[in-house]
Write a protein that binds this DNA or RNA. Structure first.
Lengths: 180, 180
DNA sequence: ACTATTAGTATCGAGTCGAAACTATTGCAA
DNA sequence: TTGCAATAGTTTCGACTCGATACTAATAGT
């Protein structure tokens, strides 16, 4: 069927038009994508490797991107005590502010009916999962929708990492997430 | 509503994962996007300007991309007789072959139900139109769905450009298209 | 105690990208 | 018809992406 290619074209064109409008200020689309991931990821998932896997990129490329984000003050390095190889990056205030800048596409989406956006969300999620299954990628889903998540009084607990989680943290992306 | 950002994220992530798998062979994602547009556009719409507008890019950038596509033999230059400024590019056989190379995302899409893909197509189209309206972009729709199109015996006719169209050509993208 | 694996970085070359300057046409108006 | 503005395309610049590859340092497994 010809339709597969058409959907693919639509997605790529939409992303391209969005990227064109994402050049504002000091940032390019790739840098913005990293910032936006960082804002949504929990503290176990903010390393170069995780970003690279999430974005379908490589550690080398992402390492470069972090270098310029650090230089420009959007992000700060955080070395791990336990594993001296590991690093993760946190958003600075400037970085956090940059993640909610004007987005033409978000406006366009908000003009659609709830019915349409709900359907769109569901079918895009289906597609994403199917694509990830195809190339062995991980879902990077939300922490509290994970099979290793247990609800606690004020937040939750991860049975995989044996770590307590604040209620905010439980709503973020985790690289270890496996759908419940 | 938070959902707008989520849909935007999904589209960008999907496009990013697709781009990562589009590096195969001699081509990068941007070059592939140009090739793929060329394959779907009619003879009035294959110039650097049109490609740039379609992809949300600039003439300068697209000009660079065409330079390397020509060098690598995917595309040939075609100067216009009537307007000596104008150029358009045609796919070579090699270029045409490159447009239907294995695409992970197309496979993933073909695994979805017809019901889902139909809904997805419709909502992505709605979104695209809404986005284009927002930033004054043109639709680049299909020739025979245009208000300037008239059906003829073997093909059609464009009342805007006063040009006859083969039936194949009438199914292609036109930069002048205005929905009927 | 080795050795394999893992995390991250540096470097290379091709190419993207917006911005801006530039060339060659064509269109329009006085 | 001349004279300038608009249009089509190219070139150059600098920052950066990107995959590939080679590298360093730390940790894990045997």
């Amino acid at each position: 069927m010809e339709n597969e290619h058409y959907i693919r074209e639509l997605i790529n064109r939409l992303a391209r038009l969005d990227a064109a409008s994402a050049w504002q200020g000091n940032l390019n689309p790739a840098q913005r994508a990293v910032l936006s991931y960082l804002a949504r990821a929990n503290r176990f998932s903010r390393s170069p490797s995780h970003v690279a896997e999430y974005l379908g990129s490589t550690r080398g490329t992402v390492s470069q991107t972090f270098k310029s984000l650090v230089q420009k003050g959007y992000v700060i390095e955080q070395r791990s005590q336990t594993d001296k190889r590991a690093i993760h990056f946190d958003l600075t205030d400037k970085g956090a502010r940059a993640t909610d800048e004007p987005k033409l596409m978000s406006q366009a989406i908000s003009k659609m009916t709830k019915r349409t956006t709900d359907g769109l969300t569901a079918s895009l999620e289906t597609l994403l999962l199917s694509l990830l299954a195809e190339n062995g990628g991980r879902a990077f889903g939300i922490c509290n929708q994970c099979r290793h998540f247990e609800t606690r009084e004020n937040g939750g607990h991860c049975t995989l990492l044996s770590e307590d989680l604040s209620s905010i943290e439980a709503t973020k992306i985790c690289n270890e997430q496996e759908p419940a």
